[in-house]
């Protein structure tokens, strides 16, 4: 049985949907960050698969830059989260309504 591009794309879709469900149902901000990591990883799998099956290195390059973006997002996001936790004592998404959004 040959594993084709479609297999990988379907897997990436499933993982992306799992991450999407996580983004929708989480209220804790740390858990929300976990879900975004899942989203980024699903996209990375898709990029690597296309890079392999079309013999093109561009997909891998984009995956590298996505990893760099994810790393800096975690650094800044966790810093902000720690500051918020020091000020208010919780990281609940529903309490962050000071801008009346």
């Amino acid at each position: 049985m040959e594993i084709g591009l479609t297999h990988y794309l379907v897997l990436a879709t499933i993982l992306f949907s799992i991450g999407l469900i996580g983004v929708m149902r989480r209220k804790n901000l740390l858990m929300l960050f976990f879900a975004t990591e899942i989203l980024l990883n699903a996209v990375n799998i898709g990029f690597a698969a296309i890079s392999h099956y079309y013999n093109d290195l561009t997909g891998q390059m984009f995956a590298f830059f996505i990893i760099a973006v994810a790393a800096s997002e975690v650094a800044v996001g966790l810093g902000l989260l720690i500051v918020w936790h020091k000020r208010t004592g919780n990281i609940n998404l529903d309490t962050m309504s000071s801008m009346r959004g």
């Binding site: 590298f64 830059f65 760099a68 790393a71 800096s72 650094a75 800044v76 810093g79 902000l80 720690i82």
Partner: peptide, 15 residues
């Protein structure tokens, strides 16, 4: 990307 990671590191330390 390298500059972005540096900025993120400084931001994380400051925050």
């Amino acid at each position: 990307a390298a500059v972005m990671l540096l900025v993120a590191m400084v931001a994380g330390i400051v925050l």
